[in-house]
Amino acid sequence: MIPLIASMVLFSIGIYGVLSKRDILRITISVSVILGSITLLLASLAQNSGNYSFILFIWAVEVMEILVALAVFLYLARSEKKDINDLQQLRW
């Protein structure tokens, strides 16, 4: 019970962080928080059966995503774009 509530609380903290921050790195940090909360949820739900191995798949994707995010950040930071709202090419 407590892990479930904790995962929801952490999830909402992560969503809050994604939506309210303008720094790209901080947003990536918030995404990691979200994914962590999800893994916690899955772990607590799988407690009875003892099959925790599904979480490895999520970790794999999460690590790749963080790698790609950091690579993109490095590319953007070269032209001094650290604010996410500067990325406005995809608009009407």
Binding site: G36, I55, W59, I66
Partner: peptide
């Protein structure tokens, strides 16, 4: 929760890997 290997993996991958990567990226800029 009883998932020892998950705990270890979390520590290896995320604390040791992801946090280190963050620090690395941050320092490059």
């Amino acid at each position: 929760l009883g998932a020892w290997y998950l705990a270890v993996g979390q520590l290896f991958l995320f604390v040791g890997g992801v946090v280190t990567l963050f620090v690395l990226a941050f320092n490059f800029v």
